[in-house]
Write a protein that binds this DNA or RNA. Structure first.
Length: 266
DNA sequence: AACGGGGGCAACCGCCACCTC
DNA sequence: TGAGGTGGCGGTTGCCCCCGT
């Protein structure tokens, strides 16, 4: 019954990701899309667990991520949404394009909390601090009268949030619906300065993004030739050392799912 | 120049809901 | 039907960098 665990942590790498790992992961996802995080690291040749790969992709490698600090308008919107949704960062993040829940959470904890306190507002309740002094006492939360009149036995208090229905669904869906050209173009803004006809290299097959081996070699040779690429110049990494063609870019996911996992154990 | 403290942020942990077998 | 896997989420940790002393 059941399945194999998503990862045994024996022998798996932890800590910060290297550039090589980033490119192995990005290469694999751009070639094959995402169907099952558990086997992504095996197929991509990474000594990471699927969860770690998923997190890295969502929080750092995803092509539609917006880099840079939050604008005042974004901060205001975060505060507004937080007052409605509380610490439901993924819901809040779904209202911003190019922002991750982790990013918003970090920004909240490091910047906005202080900003609100500076404005005399309690970050937890969004009420003026003078009026909620007693409620900020952690012991107060367990006092019987706090919620007993509004929450029936067996109900989930956390589901009181309005507008949940309009929140876009899973990240996976978003990733799979990327326009291929746009997706890679965004990557190449940071990966290379030399012009590449990206659109001609990729093709959509249903929800999957495909690129032929020769096109991929062409793309990456362009990237590696680019002396003005700050990304690579800074780290003095040669693309030659990466096994970019380790998987068949055109192989459908069904192909992988039919192969016993043990074949990919590293 | 050396050191310590604080801030920022990437990554991990543990839990939960849903799904699969 | 229920045990267990998977993906997603929020909380937390720990490292690195910057700045002040």
């Amino acid at each position: 019954m059941g399945r194999k665990p998503c990862c045994d942590k024996i022998g798996l790498k932890r800590g910060p990701w290297t550039i090589e790992e980033d490119h192995r992961l990005m290469n694999f996802i751009l070639n094959n899309g995402i169907h099952c995080w558990r086997i992504v690291p095996k197929l991509a040749g990474l000594l990471r667990c699927g969860k770690s790969c998923r997190l890295r992709w969502i929080n750092y490698l995803r092509p539609d991520l917006k880099r840079g600090g939050f604008t005042d308008a974004e901060e205001d919107r975060i505060m507004e949404l937080h007052s409605q949704l509380g610490n439901r960062w993924s819901k809040i993040a779904s209202h911003f394009s190019g922002r991750t829940d982790n990013e918003i959470k970090n920004h909240w904890n490091t910047k906005i909390k202080k900003k609100m306190k500076h404005l005399g507002l309690d970050p937890a309740t969004h009420e003026p601090i003078n009026n909620i002094t007693d409620q900020t006492d952690p012991n107060q939360k367990t006092k019987p009268n706090m919620c007993s009149t509004t929450i029936k036995e067996g109900e989930e208090p956390k589901d009181q949030t309005p507008n949940d229905d309009v929140v876009p669904e899973t990240t996976k869906t978003v990733i799979m619906s990327y326009n291929a050209e746009e997706l890679v173009a965004k990557n190449c803004k940071t990966l290379c300065a030399e012009e590449v006809d990206i659109g001609s290299l990729f093709e959509m097959q249903g929800n999957e993004i495909s690129i032929s081996s020769s096109s991929f070699s062409s793309l990456y040779s362009n990237i590696s030739r680019s002396e003005s690429s700050s990304y690579f110049a800074e780290d003095s990494v040669s693309l030659e050392q990466w096994d970019l063609d380790m998987t068949d870019p055109l192989a459908p996911w069904d192909f992988f799912t039919n192969i016993d996992d043990t074949l990919f154990l590293l």
